[in-house]
Amino acid sequence: MKVVVVRPERCVGCLQCRFACSVVHSESKSPFTAPYESILSKPRIHVGVTTGKEPFPNKCRHCNPAPCEMACITKAIFRDESTGIVLINSDRCINCGMCAMACPFGVIRYHVYVDRRTSAHKCDQCFARQKEGKIPACVEVCKVGALVFEDYNKMMDKATDQLASLVYLGIREKEREKGPYPTLIAYKNTLQEIKRR
């Protein structure tokens, strides 16, 4: 089953994923008109920042079992068995806040939905887009490969191959040549460390 795999070390904090998420969940689905709609579509992926100023993309993992589903008292949160995606039925949601309490990753927010009621709100893995054969919007716009849409097992197989090669070559830790982005991150960490002195 394809899942969205997050590689936070690749995230550059451009926030394109948030913008795309808002746009595809808006009424008009156009970046030019979405910001002007009367009920603003809010993004369901959150990019936090660590104290070392590194960006961290945080979205629903569609856990199995899902703590939010277990905590929901109206059964508004349910799993679509065919895709494994955990969805929120906003008609049933009574905005009680139990799901935010249960979510170990802090990805649930509360916003006004189309019928002007506030209800719980989280990533739906672009359920509607997937039915049309498209990939989740956040993955589509991420140009650094921080978000990828892959069959989980294939992803793990690739990782196993990589690890196997390294072990074969006797290399304990991957000695990557320092690309520009890791250098930038190291510099930002230095700035923070200096501030703390």
Binding site: A100, M101, C103, P104, G106, I108, R109
Partner: peptide, 10 residues
């Protein structure tokens, strides 16, 4: 301040 309360709960 509910946004990331669940992280601490867990």
């Amino acid at each position: 301040n509910p946004e990331e309360a669940g992280v601490i709960v867990n």
